[in-house]
Simulated scan of single mutants.
Amino acid sequence: MTALSRDGAIKTISRTMDNLPQAEFDDDQVREFVMMVFASFGVMRKQDTWAPPPTRELLDSLEDYDFDRTLLRQQTELYINYYKSMQSPQIDWLLANLMICAEVVATAKAWKHQSWLQHGRIRWRRVAFSAILFFINWGLWLGLALVINSFLGTTVFLAWVGATIVYCFNAWRVRRRNALLLADMAAVYEATRSATLSWSVIWDVLSKTRDKGAVWDSELYRLVEICISRPKI
Rank of each mutant, 00 (worst) to 15 (best):
A183K: 05
I100T: 13
W172S: 13
T154M: 11
F129A: 09
R126P: 02
G120S: 14
R126W: 10
Q118L: 14
L140D: 10
W172P: 02
I165W: 11
T107L: 01
V161I: 15
V105P: 00
R175D: 02
F157H: 15
F135S: 05
V174T: 11
A110I: 00
A159M: 08
V188A: 07
C101F: 10
A171L: 05
S115L: 06
L181G: 07
G120C: 11
L98N: 05
N170Y: 13
D184S: 07
N178M: 00
S194K: 04
W199S: 08
W172D: 04
Y189D: 02
V104K: 00
T209P: 06
V156F: 13
R123Y: 03
A179C: 00
W141F: 15
R210C: 00
V205C: 03
N149S: 08
V147W: 15
I148P: 14
M99Y: 01
T196W: 04
C168L: 14
S200F: 02
G143E: 04
R125A: 06
G153P: 04
H113T: 09
A171K: 08
A145G: 10
T155Q: 12
L180V: 09
N178H: 03
W203M: 09
L182Y: 02
S194W: 00
V104N: 03
V205N: 03
G143W: 01
R177W: 06
G120L: 12
V104F: 04
C101H: 12
I132E: 12
L158S: 06
F151T: 14
F134R: 07
I136S: 13
E103S: 07
V104Y: 02
N149E: 07
G162E: 05
W172N: 06
L140P: 13
F151V: 15
V156R: 09
G143L: 11
S194C: 02
A183L: 00
V156D: 12
